[in-house]
Design a protein around this nucleic acid. Sequence first.
DNA 1: CTGAAAGCGCTTACAG
DNA 2: CTGAAAGCGCTTACAG
Lengths: 352, 352
Amino acid sequence: MSTRRRAREPAEESEVAGFTGPATINDIARLAGVSKKTVSRVINASPLVRAETREKVAGLMRQVGYVPDPQARGLAFRRAFLIGLVYDNPNAQYIVNVQNGALDALRGSGFELVVHPCESRSDDFIEGVCRFVQRQKLHGAILLPPVSENEALAEALERLDVRYVRVGSVPFGAAARTVVSNDRAAAVEVAEYLVGLGHRAIGLIAGPHSHRSAHERAAGFGEVLARHGIELPPERVVEGGYTFESGVACAGRLLALASRPTAIFACNDEMAAGAYTAAYRMGLRVPEDVSIVGFDDSPLAARLWPALTTVRLPIRDMGRQAAALLLDPAAAAPAPLTPHLAVRDSCGPPAR
Amino acid sequence: MSTRRRAREPAEESEVAGFTGPATINDIARLAGVSKKTVSRVINASPLVRAETREKVAGLMRQVGYVPDPQARGLAFRRAFLIGLVYDNPNAQYIVNVQNGALDALRGSGFELVVHPCESRSDDFIEGVCRFVQRQKLHGAILLPPVSENEALAEALERLDVRYVRVGSVPFGAAARTVVSNDRAAAVEVAEYLVGLGHRAIGLIAGPHSHRSAHERAAGFGEVLARHGIELPPERVVEGGYTFESGVACAGRLLALASRPTAIFACNDEMAAGAYTAAYRMGLRVPEDVSIVGFDDSPLAARLWPALTTVRLPIRDMGRQAAALLLDPAAAAPAPLTPHLAVRDSCGPPAR
DNA sequence: CTGAAAGCGCTTACAG
DNA sequence: CTGAAAGCGCTTACAG
């Protein structure tokens, strides 16, 4: 072994004489005195290699700093070492959290993450996703809501025989291809909390009915109120679009009601922030005049004044689970994750 | 031509008899009655093809829905059709905006975007990035601040002969490899605005000195105050960490000063949000008691109450420029983008 | 348990 | 302007 000091650089350039540039399977084969096929077997952890041979080859690979070329492997395998992240979601923090979670699972696996935003309202978006997946010969795709809720897309991917995992608030299709957060249970927790504080006049800013999560959240919430015999009349339920602006508008309507609610559950943090603005514009204080709860625990939540009580969605965990499922389809479907309430400063007992 | 209806699926499966599955270069060559090399020339827009031949081949490719396999091309080219996005940045919106911008430029080019977060404080992060870039044979990498400011990384990539573009607030190294936003000019605008409102007692929450942007923003700001003969004594300048919490702490110190500033320039929105919280905790109103300006125009800014006046950074444009530069290194270096003030509701004239 | 041949879908280098 | 041969770095299918 050479004793000269090495610069702090990747050890791709072998110190073993005989070749320059990153080592290839041929270099390893020659060095080990075996065929490249045997090296290939070691790379792919085939059991059809004598232990002794395997160790010799593996040792050499380590020593030389050899890593198989993913591109060449992909070409031969007819499948790239790439995972696609397909989404149509305005919430940047959600995207980045999923990315980080997926990357957690991918680390060291040789797979990389390719991002693919799309327009699920556009007419040819399914075709676009299929083209992307097929052209890149993706190993699999992670579908985020609301794209994950699109049955037509799932069917199209099925036909193309590409692996995918759907992330959402309810299991759709095969459980093995789904990562679920139990939004309904979390909404139950929100309702129990508000009722426990003494609220009876409660307003709900629901999400857009095109999103499955909107149904889950509203359903869990309504369930509890009903159980407690608390009315949730139609005028106290308004549908927003998961956006800040819609939150301002919806809360404005709720707070202008003759029987003004003492608490509002906004089905995501964006709309909750809008509710703050609507309240402040009317000269109302949070939480003295109106308690507000959000959903997501986006970074926004902790930065509002007063800090927003909300539901913490384990988004990074979901990203991790999704990627893990793609790497090992044989793995058991993960149990649904239940998000929980993060109590901060936006709720109090009703004034009346 | 067949007249049967086609399902709304990508036209990868050719209707021309003779082969199944996505068409390959060989199929096109056979169909066109030319060699695969000629098809290759058409793919790569080589001038060494007779116009007639080119049109025949190109027409066939279109008709069949042929798209060259990026993996195979990559292997032969010894360079993947992938652009890496390397970052170490907690601001999700920043990342997603850059991603979207880069994707804008990449659309239709056949290149895809691979994300690679890293820990620039970690000891072996340069090695990690080099390994990533080299292993994937990336066509190029986009470096975001603060990673982009790391000279050692730039040198390492240089040695490996990989293309990269550095995104930042000041041009470092070769201009052709840099996408710059003129943060200094924007900070000048902020200062002029506050001075114009009549403020004289002004506080500055600077960014961490490890970030180049922190210097630029503070410098541009200080410059204007000096020009107007307005003092910026040391106690009115505090260094934050670009985080919400540091903003709370720094603003708390500024607002506790005997000669309390009537305006605060927080060098990013996160810290500005922290300044709101610090003010509110002390019972101060924004902007009546203290005006606050941020920087970035993150989604947070418009969601705070009152809506934050801040500097709108053209992040998506920068992502687009960076990717475009990577696709066409011959292109002229883009002119620095100057961000501008987005005036909202967080500033007013000083009370005194 | 191991290997020689052929192939994945494209390009380079060399001829003509 | 066009093509036959060899090769990119790996794997599959087939032998032994």
